[in-house]
């Protein structure tokens, strides 16, 4: 099976959808002549022509609305937001229109649209280094997928474009170049299905998106120290599929939740709440959550590195859980 990057996996999925379905088109900032900010749509202008891929002005709410209108009228737009930080300018369109149309018009319209947007950081400072996963995961009417492997990136993108509802597709600048096995043929990964990536008996690590490669590293390192960690990749954070998480937790009785977001009131908080309620009788230690320190992202490289989680943060959290320690989350 070919080994390709996450970015290439996305490109394959988009290309396949554009080729097979004339209703699919792409809009966004710098997606045409600049080959998009992270190169995902590289070469698409030549392949599909200017009718199928269009550059947009710096007016996120405007072109998000354009996409939503097109979706209501039967097209299958893929709207690329250059980053999640810019996408918040389109929150009204996404939340008050895309998420609500099907419900508010009594089912007369659907809104089959995909919003692609990467999280990320890397000396981009406070306003450009954020994660809003929970904003979307909070909202009934949306589906939110956050693939953590090239295989899932391709399969979930195909599923997102085929889905009749608005799908928020969250990527990450730090993950575009990771590699993995991806079949050339067409396939989809179902939205709303978590995936046990690694079985283990000592602790259940739950993560998604950018944290998955870190968690995989952590699982390997922990194994070399004799700690047998399980890893569940949520893949979709709305609707949330807790069953594989609970199934593992019933064996391990301990959990670490690794998400790249501010820890309090995040997606991880919801996972923890579900484990505490649905998994109560199986609990053997307080749950730990790994995430950003609760500060605006610093620009200085050393400070930034201190704030963001990585494989070591996951390993440390696992050890804390195994020692039965209680996490104290400090909000500034």
């Amino acid at each position: 099976m070919p080994v390709i990057t996450y970015s290439e996996a996305l490109r394959q999925a988009l290309r396949e959808a554009m080729t097979n379905d004339p209703r699919v088109f792409i809009i966004g900032e710098d997606v045409v002549h600049y080959d998009s900010a992270y190169g995902v749509t590289k070469g698409f202008l030549k392949e599909f022509g200017p009718e199928r891929i269009k550059d947009m002005p710096i007016a996120e709410a405007g072109y998000a609305g354009l996409g939503i209108g097109a979706a209501m009228n039967g097209l299958r737009p893929v709207v690329e937001m250059m980053t999640t930080n810019f996408a918040i300018l389109a929150l009204d369109m996404i939340i008050n229109h895309a998420a609500k149309l099907h419900y508010m018009f009594g089912g007369q319209f659907t809104c089959p649209i995909v919003f692609r947007m990467p999280n990320g950081y890397g000396q981009l400072s406070a306003t450009h280094s954020q994660a809003f996963d929970n904003y979307y995961a909070y909202m009934p009417g949306l589906k939110v997928v956050v693939p953590g492997t090239p295989y899932d990136a391709k399969g979930l993108m195909k599923a997102a474009i085929e889905d009749p509802d608005p799908v928020i597709f969250i990527e990450h600048t730090g993950i575009y170049n990771i590699k993995g096995e991806v079949p050339e043929e067409s396939y989809t990964v179902p939205i709303g299905k978590s995936n046990l990536l690694h079985d283990g008996k000592d602790v259940t690590i739950v993560g998604y998106g950018r944290m998955i490669p870190y968690c995989q590293q952590a699982v390997e390192t922990l194994a070399s120290e004799g700690i047998d960690a399980a890893l569940v990749d949520l893949r979709t954070i709305r609707p949330l599929d807790m069953e594989p998480v609970l199934e593992s937790f019933r064996k391990t009785n301990r959990a670490v939740i690794a998400t790249e977001e501010w820890t309090s009131v995040g997606v991880g908080s919801e996972i923890a709440a579900r484990l505490y309620t649905e998994g109560f009788d199986h609990l053997d230690a307080p749950i730990w959550r790994v995430g950003f320190d609760e500060v605006p992202m610093p620009y200085a490289k050393n400070l930034e590195a201190h704030v963001v989680p990585n494989a070591d943060s996951v390993i440390q959290a696992v050890k804390n859980v195994l020692a039965g320690k209680t996490q104290k989350i400090r909000q500034q």
């Binding site: 009785n253 109560f280 009788d281 199986h282 609990l283 053997d284 230690a285």
Partner: peptide, 10 residues
């Protein structure tokens, strides 16, 4: 109070 985790109690 006797402090034990839920799984330990069960």
């Amino acid at each position: 109070r006797l402090v034990a985790t839920p799984v330990a109690r069960g």
